[in-house]
Write a protein that binds this DNA or RNA. Structure first.
Lengths: 345, 345
DNA sequence: TTGTAAGCGTTATCAT
DNA sequence: ATGATAACGCTTACAA
């Protein structure tokens, strides 16, 4: 492998000069263009690449960003990852993927590993369960920027990028209301999940302000977060057993909506002709579901983008003055995407 | 940060002894248990972690495995990633995620970066287009184990884990045949995509051996690989414009099947009552689609597992005798997963 | 049984 | 304007 010393020999300049040129170091301001050219040309010709290990050892920087996801096969994660990758391209950072598998032990294990590897930051896609904060806190305390995606962080020193759940739920309901729906059913998220409460507040606020009655018979609550599609399916079946007196459903999220739609179709109820359905998230499959799902989009890609830009800023600051950037909280406004699963009464 | 030298001072032993103990080096066989204990205890107490940068510099090993995907938001990739991550857990390797975005320029860019970072291997999820081989070849030539997932590699020095497409297509068709279907339509994959031809061979072989006529009117070919769901939708609409004389469809893959189902539903044709549909891949969404899709599963998770085990073996060999393991080709037998999108005539 | 010292490749400091 | 040198922290051949 070609080293800078070898390059020095071949070019007749010293390693120092070469390093200064190749890194455009401010300390090498005075090196004449002619020298620079010679060095650059030779480096290119010989295919010289600085050894990252040596660099890292010198600078104690890994140029690695850890991306933690609760479960890689969750389509929600995939979109966020997309955003992260796009934003990271062009920077000198490479993402290290860490899949927690919704598992506490793995979480601990990886937290250690990441420390040892000296990753320069961690972007963690929020788990529906709240496992994370404590361990992430450990990382943050060690001076590593931690950014949580998808949930507001209360913890000092942890940044977050999340969605305005309240507004999201409100515009979903508003859409149905405007389409003339008055008998609307709800599949609420599990109590444990933080988002549930917020979304429900959006619902009840809108209901109050528009004098829409919320019938308890039309409200089902999900049990836990695993396989929301199955849960949506069951919830809808339960709903249908009790009553058919509704013309629309607000589902907790897209996966729930998918399950609900299946149950409706199976019961011979057509979506959207006989019953409208709205989801939340705008997961990729929403666009090609049968029928394509009207849903609240909060551009998970954008969540990822924002997460990266917070990280990049923190990393830069850290490199400069060795100080730690204080945590940032950002919130994204959601948007309704109207597809084929909703229609007028 | 605590160094081995500091630990040496505190313990009264030399850095050498400490290194030998902490790494269970064969060279340190003769160190008595008592010393070992003392050292281990102190290291644990002080929370000593060896600096990976220094280690890497010494050993020129990065303990990083690059995972290249054509498009992270493709559900096919997600499943493979899951398998890779699961298999990598417990090893000392961490996956570096590289999303090519179906883009040649990015591919080149990342190939360079990965070389510089000295990743110890590359697992590349096959692109539907054939961009890859040349650049991957460059990596392989440099002695980095390259494993392609999802397509047979012809290139010397590149390993691969792929699916028996022929068998897969055959069992899909066979299933419909056994359910009594005789007028069967086909949405063929794009010509460019290698898998298309293989799957079609499986189809025509079965047709021949069972005297099933293949009616040209019932065969549509897709144009390119982008957004196969949309293409499936269009293909089915085209099919329906020409004729309705079929009771079942074999789609190129799951995404195509999703599109086809949407078109059928939209035309008032019920799946599976009026028309059966089979897919290929068993993407996650297949399980919760409306209706849940009968499809050929080739456990992409397992593809990922196998890819990792090939890599791990190669990496170990490389570490030992510095030699490069010769490329391995593996093929997985697919399996039919019967769900709700197919029924008897 | 344990310790000394060299070297991995880079870059920052200081000298020329 | 350019170069010599030391240091980053670890491992390992060799010495004691």
């Amino acid at each position: 492998m070609l080293t800078i010393r070898e390059l020095a020999k071949q070019s007749g300049f010293s390693p120092t000069t070469i390093s200064l040129v190749l890194n455009d170091s401010p300390a090498g301001q005075h090196i004449p263009e002619k020298t620079r050219q010679k060095i650059r040309d030779l480096a290119a010709k010989l295919g010289y690449h600085p050894n990252q290990f040596a660099r890292s050892l010198r600078s104690s920087r890994s140029y690695a960003l850890a991306v933690m996801v609760p479960d890689i096969s969750d389509p929600y994660c995939a979109q966020v990852l997309l955003g992260i990758n796009k934003s990271l391209f062009g920077s000198k950072y490479l993402p290290v993927l860490v899949d927690i598998q919704n598992n506490r032990a793995r979480f601990r294990h990886y937290a250690r590993t990441l420390l040892e590897r000296r990753v320069e930051g961690v972007i963690a896609v929020a788990n529906s369960l709240q496992l994370q904060t404590e361990i992430l806190g450990t990382l943050a305390k060690r001076g590593i920027p931690v950014i949580v995606i998808g949930r507001e962080s209360t913890h000092q020193g942890i940044s977050s990028v999340s969605v305005d759940n309240e507004t999201g739920a409100r515009i979903a309901l508003e859409h149905l209301y405007e389409k003339g729906h008055r008998r609307i059913a709800f599949i609420r998220g599990p109590r444990k999940v933080v988002d549930s409460a917020r979304r429900w507040r959006g619902i009840s606020d809108f209901a109050k302000s528009s004098a829409l009655p919320l019938d308890k018979k039309l409200i089902v609550e999900m049990k836990d977060a695993a396989s929301s599609s199955e849960e949506g399916f069951e919830a809808m079946k339960k709903l249908l057993r009790q009553t058919r007196g509704f013309t629309a459903v607000v589902a907790f999220d897209d996966m729930t909506a998918f399950g609900a739609i299946r149950a409706l179709t199976q019961a011979g109820i057509k979506v959207p002709e006989d019953c409208s359905v709205v989801g939340f998230d705008d997961v990729a499959a929403a666009a090609y579901y049968n029928p394509p799902l009207t849903t609240v989009s909060h551009s998970m890609e954008k969540l990822g983008n924002l997460g990266v830009s917070i990280f990049l800023e923190a990393a830069q600051k850290a490199g400069k003055d060795g100080r730690i950037l204080k945590a940032t909280q950002r919130k994204l406004e959601p948007l309704l995407v109207v597809r084929k699963s909703t229609s007028t009464v």
